[in-house]
Write a protein that binds this DNA or RNA. Structure first.
Length: 594
RNA sequence: GAUCCCAUAGCUCAGCUGGAUAGAGCAACGGUUUUCUAAACCGUAGGCCUUUGGUUCGAAUCCAAAUGGGAUCACCA
């Protein structure tokens, strides 16, 4: 590409002018306040040139101008060498991408295998806003990696067992009166969640009573009758007690039905679903091997641990004294299982940053145990979504429910659309689809435009915006393009196969837009490298914003010069493709009209 | 107590691989529509980039410390 060429030639220039060889040379985009496309900062070369910054820049500029045909002119400001690339270069580039897909539509045969795990819900409560961030992030990262040429396997591990699951079960058994999703009309995951909250309420009051009787907090929590019952239930589950298992299957079934609806609404899916009830016993053979090799040690009470104090961490227990396994043990086991199944090059865990420590330890242990593939593990750690009053807690009911929020967004989209009078000529079905596209798009973009690692604040009192740096704005610009194209096609002045003239004088904005298209691929690759949909979100917003300005100032259909009109139509079309493609990387659909 | 993450306009965020006068959106104020969709466009106002030191020709950006906020450090998941 042009930047490599410039770097190459600059290296030559330095060799020719000053007899020095410099290995790394990089150009940057010229600051908009100055004229030029690429800028070379020459301060680094003053030691070799032994000349003033201005002179050094001029000399290099002169060399480049005579040796690189693509450079139309250059200017020097202090130590900055600004190069202006000829319009013909940009037009050629534009002609080369016009009408083409900007991403890998087919994964190369020898592509790296990347497993992306995300979602990982518990089956004791419905999804909330934090889960939505997780789901959208995981899905988008998977799309980005796919488009950047990886073979991606999306996986979900469902936490379908354990003491927290028993809580909903026990509460339903005690106080449910046989309620079902059908009998109540409540979505299955919400119904189960209701009993999870109910359990906690009763349990808390039991603990409080015991404390009033003089128990310590710890003893009260341990000895509350409900806690004893729960432990008993978990034991029965583990022993395969028929009644408990039946109840478990029934209630999980309700939850899965509910999740299916939420997943569908979010537009996420999975290639493989694992269930913790099938995998929670994995990992023990790893422990045996670790003990044999001496990496793991056994305590006197028979529990097994690894000493990580030399790495600045703690001793981590991997097997209880009764021989049963722990969260970490399971995760070691599932990681190995996945490697054996898929031989992944990378395994990405989309999990909130409260588990940073866990994943650090997980990788470290696997490395110490000598699994070479452990280097491919990556914790895609994202910040929590917080409310103005702090962290969301399902047990206490202080959550923004995913289903409610999605419904709200779609309703707002519907109201706004109607208010703007944009529903004429739409069937009811089309209108409903449009509201969903806009509402869900706004939500997705809102969550994805922020750097994943940063925690984010959601204020339910201020609903998510539909103006400005939002998905509806980006969609709107896509829709404008489509409107223009269909008019032009009808009028017979637009064909996909039209040639674009190379002799056009580009407007500054047109050049900017082409350069923006030019940076699509580097942006995609960077996003794939950093697992950051936010980079794509920012890119597509910039593109849409620049197009919006261009659209406002520049006639397209009304342009009388045919060559210009054709060029502008194709430029608009290509920008539309870039918008649609970028949004798809975010898991956002764009409407054809709105 | 230890470790990790974060700190940029009133609010929500870009800017990270050191570069020229730190950018958007929202909110506020003013303007633009007989002209390709105004969910738009243009303008005004808004900044000790938390603080202090260091590295450098050059620091919002790199390093160190302090302050403030968050998370984690279970034989819970």
């Amino acid at each position: 590409m042009i930047e490599q060429l410039l770097a190459e030639k600059t290296r030559e220039a330095l060799q020719w002018l000053y007899g020095a060889s410099v290995s790394t040379i990089s150009f940057e985009k010229t600051n908009p306040d100055f004229s030029g496309d690429f800028t070379l900062v020459v301060f680094n070369f003053l030691k070799i040139s032994k000349k003033k910054p201005e002179d050094t820049a001029s000399e290099i500029g002169n060399y480049l101008k005579t040796n690189v045909v693509e450079i139309a002119e250059f200017n020097v400001v202090k130590g900055f060498l600004n190069l202006v690339i000829a319009d013909s270069y940009w037009l050629n580039f534009f002609a080369s991408i016009k009408g083409k897909s900007l991403i890998y539509s087919q994964v190369p045969a020898n592509a790296p295998v990347v497993m992306v795990e995300y979602s990982s819900p518990n089956t004791n409560k419905p999804l909330h806003l934090g889960h939505v961030r997780n789901n959208l992030l995981g899905f988008s990262v998977a799309e980005i990696l796919k488009s950047a040429g990886n073979k991606v396997i999306k996986t979900n591990i469902v936490n379908d067992r354990g003491i927290h699951i028993c809580k909903s079960m026990l509460a339903w058994q005690k106080w449910g009166n046989g309620e079902t999703p059908d009998s109540t009309g409540i979505k299955g995951d919400h119904l189960v969640g209701k009993y999870y909250v109910l359990f906690d309420k009763h349990y808390k009051s039991e603990v409080l009573n015991l404390k009033l009787e003089g128990f310590s907090e710890e003893d009260a929590e341990k000895n509350a009758p409900l806690m004893l019952e729960i432990k008993d239930m978990l034991l029965k589950w583990e022993q395969g007690d028929k009644e408990v298992r039946e109840l478990w299957k029934k209630m999980n079934g309700w939850v899965y039905k509910g999740f299916e609806v939420s997943y569908k609404m979010m537009g996420v899916d999975f290639d493989k679903t694992y269930y913790e009830s099938n995998t929670y016993l994995l990992g023990k053979n790893i422990i045996d091997n670790g003990l044999a090799s001496g990496v793991l040690k056994r305590r006197e009470d028979n529990s097994v641990f690894i000493d990580l104090t030399a790495d600045g961490l703690d001793e981590k227990t991997l097997l209880r004294s009764d021989g049963t396994s722990l969260y970490m043990t399971q995760d070691l086991g599932t990681a190995l299982q996945r490697y054996e199944e898929e031989h992944f090059d990378k395994l990405i865990f989309t999990v909130a940053n409260e588990q940073d420590y866990h994943f650090k330890v997980l990788s470290l242990i696997l490395n110490k145990l000598g699994y070479h593939w452990a280097k491919g593990l990556h914790h895609l750690s994202y910040g929590m979504v917080e409310l103005p009053e702090g962290k969301m807690k399902s047990r206490e009911g202080t959550v923004v429910d995913a289903d409610d929020l999605m419904e709200d967004m779609i309703n707002t989209a519907a109201a706004t659309t109607k208010e703007l009078g944009k529903v004429e000529n739409l069937t009811e079905e089309e209108a409903a689809h449009l509201y969903k596209t806009i509402g869900m798009g706004a939500l997705k973009y809102f969550l994805l435009k922020v750097d994943p690692k940063k925690k984010m604040l959601f204020n339910p009192a201020e609903s998510i915006d539909f103006n400005g740096n939002t998905a509806p704005f980006i969609m709107f610009n896509y829709v404008r393009v489509q409107a223009m194209l269909s008019k032009a096609t009808e009028a017979g002045i637009y064909n996909e196969s039209d040639m674009v003239s190379e002799k056009i004088n580009l407007l500054p904005k047109e050049k900017e837009l082409i350069i923006k298209l030019f940076s699509f691929t580097p942006t995609l690759l960077q996003a794939a490298n950093e697992y950051s949909p936010a980079l794509i979100a920012n890119y597509v917003y910039d593109l849409a914003k620049e197009f919006s300005q261009y659209y406002h100032d520049t006639p397209v259909l009304k342009e009388e010069n045919m060559e210009l009109k054709t060029f502008r139509l194709h430029l608009s079309k290509t920008i539309g493709v870039a918008i649609k493609t970028s949004m798809k990387l975010l898991g956002i659909e764009v409407p054809e009209r709105m």
